[in-house]
Nucleic acid binder design. Sequence first.
DNA 1: ATTGATAAACTAATATTATTAGTTTATACT
DNA 2: AGTATAAACTAATAATATTAGTTTATCAAT
Lengths: 191, 191
Amino acid sequence: MGRRKRLEKEMILEASAQLAEERGMEHFTLSELAQKLGVKPPSLYNHLNGMDQLSEELAYYAINQLEAVVQKAAVGRSGKAALYEIADAYRLFALQNPQLYSVILKLPQYEPPVIEEGRNMMQVLYRVLEPYHLNQDELRTFARAYRSAMHGFVSLEQAGFFLSEPERKTSYERLIGMILQFLPQEEGAEK
Amino acid sequence: MGRRKRLEKEMILEASAQLAEERGMEHFTLSELAQKLGVKPPSLYNHLNGMDQLSEELAYYAINQLEAVVQKAAVGRSGKAALYEIADAYRLFALQNPQLYSVILKLPQYEPPVIEEGRNMMQVLYRVLEPYHLNQDELRTFARAYRSAMHGFVSLEQAGFFLSEPERKTSYERLIGMILQFLPQEEGAEK
DNA sequence: ATTGATAAACTAATATTATTAGTTTATACT
DNA sequence: AGTATAAACTAATAATATTAGTTTATCAAT
């Protein structure tokens, strides 16, 4: 008891994520979800309380995935190298899971436990920024700028606003470069 | 003939925009829209071809509003002053019309005429950037960075990711400042 | 003014969806 | 083996988008 339920929940969320990417969040329907799981729609209500709760859990699922991706990208790197790597991983996640990524924006609407998880992703960032010894204000400013740059570019790109294909990655890297320029020299860096 | 129809369309779009802000795009319903217009739902089909087309027209409506706001902000200013002013106006529009703003992201999915209008907004920006004599590549890079910064910040802020209230405007201005730093000195500027 | 065309409203009907209630079935523990 | 429980099912309801077909109001031309 409990463990098996966990698995069911996982299965439902995975199927939901998959369905969301296939059909788009707009046309996401419980009927299709049930069908994908080989079950009739009402059966879903044994595992969740309806569409609204599912959306919330999906947002939770999404932020966790992104957090894992970001964390992984930062392993074994530090300073600007880490920040470039994170930015790259962040972009790839959004491009490969556009629907899931877009769901993350709804996060702050939900209840505390879900919101906390959203905060966790930023913890990775703060850890990377530690060596720069920024004060509270500088830290906030920088973190917001960095995240805004990533989110803004990636979200416009994925929506289809940036047409010329080959230069997209370059544009992104330059944008991130612009932001990183405002970090002080790394401690113990050789130049 | 024709002019009166135009008016009807305007009325429908205004009511739609209003309803979207009231209920949120998620819970936007043709029944409520009809009710707001003092009419039964099927009557709407005399003026539009259904939900999908309405979404498209709403996106068109939204980008036009934003374009107007941006254009107005740029009047009588040039260079970085204009770019700060535009950024400020852009942010205010998004904060005051969050649902309408979010609809703009769907723009590239639609047909050419709608997409063209999306491009028009950027024309204003290119005009402002003319005096800097950037080459094609620099221009694209900068425009993307600037727009990404605006969109990213504003969209995260409006979603509720940035908690500490008093510093939000400051954070935004600093972000824009970071981007503008990468413009060359204005022609004929006095330092 | 009367009429006749046109457009826009209406009512009625259908299909799809989310959701609830109530029933059956399978599973797991004693 | 027998029962408690959870998860599936069927049936039913309310809301929605949409279509078809009918009525009504408007407006131009006689």
